[in-house]
Design a protein around this nucleic acid. Sequence first.
DNA 1: AGACAACCGGACGGGGTGTTCCGTTACGGT
DNA 2: ACCGTAACGGAACACCCCGTCCGGTTGTCT
Lengths: 206, 206
Amino acid sequence: MTAEVGPKLRSDARDNRERILAVARLAFATEGVDVPIREIARRAEVGPATLYRHFPTKDALLAEAFAEQMETCSAIVAEGLAAADPWQGFRLVVERLMELHALDRGFARVFTSRLPEAVFAADRDRTLRMLLDLVGRAKKAGPLRRDFVVEDLSLALMANEGIRAESPATRVAASRRFAALMIQSFMAEPVAAPLPPPVRLPLSRA
Amino acid sequence: MTAEVGPKLRSDARDNRERILAVARLAFATEGVDVPIREIARRAEVGPATLYRHFPTKDALLAEAFAEQMETCSAIVAEGLAAADPWQGFRLVVERLMELHALDRGFARVFTSRLPEAVFAADRDRTLRMLLDLVGRAKKAGPLRRDFVVEDLSLALMANEGIRAESPATRVAASRRFAALMIQSFMAEPVAAPLPPPVRLPLSRA
DNA sequence: AGACAACCGGACGGGGTGTTCCGTTACGGT
DNA sequence: ACCGTAACGGAACACCCCGTCCGGTTGTCT
């Protein structure tokens, strides 16, 4: 997964490459995908040209930076699929996916778009297929409403992306409550369950 | 509301002003608030300077352009407040607010931000106060869950804003289903109700 | 009809972004 | 220690955005 040693890189080049990726991951996660390339280069103490030599385009950088997050997504769904109770598995998947997306603003954006041309398409489709399986089981087990479709989870993830807040902490808190609400709405024979604490959203500027 | 004749404008100036506003409303609604000023000027067949003479800043244009939408928001809540059944009123408010926000991308953004410095603050607060009243009644009447807070509606509106789609039609359709789901999750003693048709979201680029 | 004020639009300067050119540096094998 | 070459980074390119200034044009009032 994280190997791809490919062509032998010079030591300084390899260092730079990894430093750029680390900086980019942090920046994209906390500030979103709109962080300028130059800024990432600056923080990695590297010239813009160096960055472009390693990643021929911004999409390439995004793809590389989010590869592990994409992997995490698959892992989350796989884990949910492995749960004894399909409904609890589904529920867990929704909660953890939303938390992941709330923690990494950039990844959320990329996941619900098709920014890196088709780099993620395969992974995403694989994940969605697993999810389809899980949904089927959760319906058969009863608690998931029959008219639920996988697209509803995409919808929920997109919606989750709309939640903005000054700090990551409040964003995650808000996202948690939102996830709980969505799960409520996905139940076939719902029973009102307690929610995570409400969050006051102070109308950020962006 | 829509009067404010203020200083007598020359006939051509008044024409331009209204044309700019019409174009701006359309552009902001369909493409969001990030439409460049110059582009709006171009579509209104007017120079940039003319636009700036009428609206000294982009925020001023936004404020003026969305004034009527803001009014509509108040009207929607007022109407919900006037309904015989508070829960039906609340439900209607949620549905209509979300539809309004889905129809007007720019307004949704402005409503959940504080872009025009404090132009909308008063209206928004007034609307929120009415909403608070409605929420109280809907709780007292029973169907609205006790741990619901007004911030949950803000949350839902923000989330609604995250729903992107190529065409306004699919966006509205998706938003409608989303609203139905959210309403489900707001019920104190929920009973699974049928949902609007599911929507396939073809992963737009933006 | 004429004259003045108000209005118009093209052009300007300042700032920001993704991407590329090219002269310089320094790694690493001999 | 040496030197070929991979890798570097600052500057520059092309594009887009905002907000302003200025000389020409047009409406309106006498």
